[in-house]
Computed example of a mutant assay.
Amino acid sequence: MKSIRPKNPSAWSLRDGTEGCERETELECGSKDKFMKVENLKLPESGGAVVDMEMSLEECPLERIRSQDFLLNSELVSSKKEHYSGDRSNDDLELPLFDFTSIAAATENFSDENKLGQGGFGCVYKGFVEGQKIVVKRLSKNSGQGTKEFKNEVKLIAKLQHRNLVRLLGCCVDADEKMLIYEYMENKSLDSFLFDKAKRYLLDWQKRFNNICGIARGLLDLHQDSRFRIIHRDLKASNILLDGELDPKISDFGMARLFGQDQTEANTKKVVGTYGYMCPEYAMDGLF
């Protein structure tokens, strides 16, 4: 925010904001200091501020600042509950929200030079934010994988922590723009090696065996060891990302489904995923 800086800039650059922020200059209550409209923020849940949703902009005078009684006003601070399509159940997501301007700058306005790939969901770009390499998944505005899948992926991945599951760094919602920001994986996806005559030889049998074991460990965490039982439903080579050591991480949870802890199977009315990668009973009868 304008006139505000992090107390610990080095920690902040690593997306650790636990030490909080401070003013660059002290308040000078009078004609110099005024309210600034700030959008896309969640209202504080406890401590430090009182929220008066009934007070108008005109009724919130500067004297409130003088008395150190900081009242947030519904016009001054837009809580943007529609960050996740108006679903208030998303308010508990502890995930950084990036603004569109910073993501556009990080990807050089989504230039072709930074494009890593494209699919039915939209495009994937690489970029830099505060010296950190990131991957931006920009959902197509006309994609069938829209708001529901976006919310699904954010809610699921934000709760996952495993070395063989791709790490979600944050997301961006701005008007009809929806983007997911992931950790950068140097070697893209597994299919870019398997189906490339020149690169497939870099995957010797030991690397392939390590990939199989890593994917299996990630699935075991999803299916059994995690606090949430998750079925991916679109597991394929293009959704397995490889780091600098060619170790695998499962990605793209847009089609995933959350199971009950004691649930081992389900019938679904709508079969989702990619034909050719589905088990027959699911492709034909929706049973998984």
Score class of each variant (00 low, 15 high):
L57F: 06
L76I: 07
N73V: 07
G86H: 06
N90D: 03
F98W: 05
L62S: 13
K81R: 13
L168S: 03
V129M: 10
L156I: 15
G122V: 01
D176A: 15
E130V: 09
D176F: 12
G170L: 08
F70K: 04
L76V: 05
G86Y: 09
G86C: 09
C123G: 04
T107A: 06
L165K: 07
L168T: 01
S102R: 09
S74T: 10
V129T: 09
L57H: 03
S143P: 00
L160S: 10
L165R: 10
F70P: 02
A175K: 15
A105Q: 10
G122R: 00
S111I: 07
H83Q: 10
S140C: 04
G131Q: 07
H162R: 13
K155C: 05
S79D: 12
I157D: 03
E82P: 06
D176C: 14
S78K: 11
Q132E: 13
P96Q: 07
K159D: 06
K137P: 00
A106C: 09
Q68S: 15
A106Y: 02
G127H: 03
D52G: 06
D69Q: 12
N73C: 08
K81V: 13
T147A: 06
E113V: 14
H162W: 13
V50H: 11
I157N: 02
V135N: 00
S140D: 03
L116I: 15
G117W: 03
M53V: 12
N73F: 07
A105K: 13
K126R: 15
Q132T: 14
K126V: 11
V136H: 00
R66S: 13
S78P: 04
V173E: 00
S78C: 15
G119V: 03
D87R: 03
I65R: 05
N90F: 08
V154W: 00
R66L: 06
E130D: 14
M55T: 01
E149M: 02
V136T: 04
G122E: 01
D176E: 15
K141V: 11
F100T: 04
E113P: 05
E82D: 15
G144Q: 07
G170H: 05
K81N: 14
S89D: 11
E59F: 01
M55F: 02
D91H: 06
E75W: 05
L139G: 02
K155S: 09
E113A: 10
